[in-house]
């Protein structure tokens, strides 16, 4: 390859400079454009990230709220059930004591009269041939064929507790 002469090289200098200036200008434009695009992309990405974050926060808060509501509901239910169980224990204790007290009525002077009346009731319901015996815990037990009537004192006590109005208030207050 034959190199340019000194004069020729010098004559091309303005062309080279013009080309270089144009290239630099073009590069500058590209750079600015790229910066703008990069900024726009970055802004878009940041906005999208913020939106995703906000949505995630929203969903997380909603999930946490419903989880908290669920936990508090379960805790409240457990607490309520504890109260209910205690009330039931009170009721069972009352029944136990009333049954116990009823068994003690056998020494009451009015007991023979009661026994007589209960025997009458048995015969009225099961017929005159019913076999009536005194129960172990007081009261009577009658049998006629396959039919049986248990009106022992504990059974009577349970019946009384079930029918006396306002008894439930003793444990539900």
């Amino acid at each position: 390859m034959i190199g340019l002469s000194q004069e020729g090289f010098a004559a091309l200098t303005p062309v080279r400079q013009a080309l270089r200036a144009a290239a630099e200008k073009q590069a500058g434009l590209f750079r600015d454009d790229a910066r703008i695009q990069a900024r726009a992309l970055l802004d878009g990405a940041k906005a999208e990230a913020a939106a995703i974050l906000a949505a995630a926060v929203g969903e997380g808060e909603a999930a946490a709220r419903s989880e908290a509501a669920l936990r508090s509901a379960r805790a409240r239910r457990q607490a309520h059930e504890l109260v209910l169980v205690q009330r039931n224990n009170l009721r069972l204790e009352l029944h136990r004591r009333v049954r116990q007290a009823a068994a003690g009525l056998t020494s009451d002077p009015r007991y023979p009269l009661l026994l007589g009346r209960l025997t009458e009731q048995c015969r009225e319901l099961l017929g005159p041939d019913a076999m009536v015996t005194e129960g172990r815990e007081g009261g009577v037990i009658a049998e006629a064929g396959s039919r049986r009537l248990d009106i022992s004192l504990p059974v009577l006590a349970e019946m009384a507790l079930d029918t006396v109005p306002g008894v439930s208030e003793l444990w539900s207050r």
């Binding site: 009451d108 009015r110 009661l114 319901l125 049986r148 009537l149 009106i151 059974v155 009384a160």
Partner: peptide, 20 residues
């Protein structure tokens, strides 16, 4: 003049049990 209360026999009818 007081008596041990005896529930009426209609109440006792529901206590009759059948074993057959």
């Amino acid at each position: 003049g007081s008596a041990l209360p005896v529930p009426p026999s209609t109440g006792f009818a529901a206590l009759v049990s059948h074993g057959d």
